[in-house]
Design a protein around this nucleic acid. Structure first.
Length: 154
DNA sequence: GCCAACGTTGGC
DNA sequence: GCCAACGTTGGC
C-alpha cells in the first residue's frame, strides 16, 4: 500500500464537504497536470492519502482519505460548461483521469504547513510537498514521512 | 529543439 | 494583492 498527499482548496472543496458527501466519498476531478495525473493512475484501491488544504488562511494537512476507486476517465474534461473542460481530451482517448476517495479520518486540528516546515531538515527531509516551488496537487509520501505526520496530528 | 510569453498555483 | 516558481503553448 502506498501513501499520497492530495491538495484541495477548502473554499472550493474542503474536508468538511467530504464529510458531508454521500458515503463520505467523492470523485477527485479537475486534475489537469500530467505529473499529478500519472501519480493518480499509480494509486491503488486501499492506498491512503493526506488531505491537504491549500490556498487558504491555514494551509496544512487536515485528515486522511482512502482510495475507494482506481483511476477512470474524468468526464468533466468533456463538458463544455465545466471550468475544467479540455477540448483536447477525447472521450475515446481520455487525457484526464480521476479517482474516488473516501474520508477515513478528520484530524482534531490542522497539521499546518508551518509545522511541517519545522521538520523539513530532519524528519520530513525530502517530502515532495516541501520542495522548492512544488505546485503538484498530488504527490507521493514515504512511509516514514506518513507515520511522522500522523504522529503530529495526535 | 529552443525559448519567450502566458497562465496557474499557492504561500505570504 | 503580490510575486516566485513552474508548466504549457506556439512561433521560429
Amino acid at each position: 500500500m502506498a501513501y499520497w498527499l492530495m491538495k484541495s482548496e477548502p473554499g472550493v472543496f474542503g474536508i468538511d464537504d467530504l464529510a458531508k458527501a454521500e458515503r463520505k466519498t467523492t470523485h477527485w476531478d479537475g486534475v489537469r497536470n500530467f505529473q499529478a495525473r500519472n501519480f493518480m493512475r499509480d494509486m491503488r484501491r486501499g492506498d491512503r492519502a493526506l488531505f491537504y488544504h491549500s490556498n487558504c488562511d491555514e494551509p496544512g494537512v487536515v485528515g486522511v482519505v482512502t482510495i475507494a476507486k482506481e483511476a477512470y476517465p474524468d468526464h468533466t474534461a468533456f463538458d463544455k460548461d465545466d471550468p475544467h473542460f479540455d477540448s483536447d481530451s477525447d472521450p475515446k482517448k481520455p487525457r484526464w483521469y480521476m479517482v474516488d476517495v473516501k474520508l477515513e479520518r478528520k484530524f482534531r486540528g490542522t497539521v499546518t504547513l508551518a509545522t511541517l516546515r519545522q521538520h523539513e531538515q530532519r524528519a520530513l527531509k525530502g517530502l515532495t510537498l516541501l520542495k522548492r516551488g512544488n505546485r503538484l496537487s498530488i504527490t507521493p509520501v514515504g512511509a516514514a514521512h506518513w507515520k511522522f505526520i500522523l504522529a503530529l496530528a495526535e
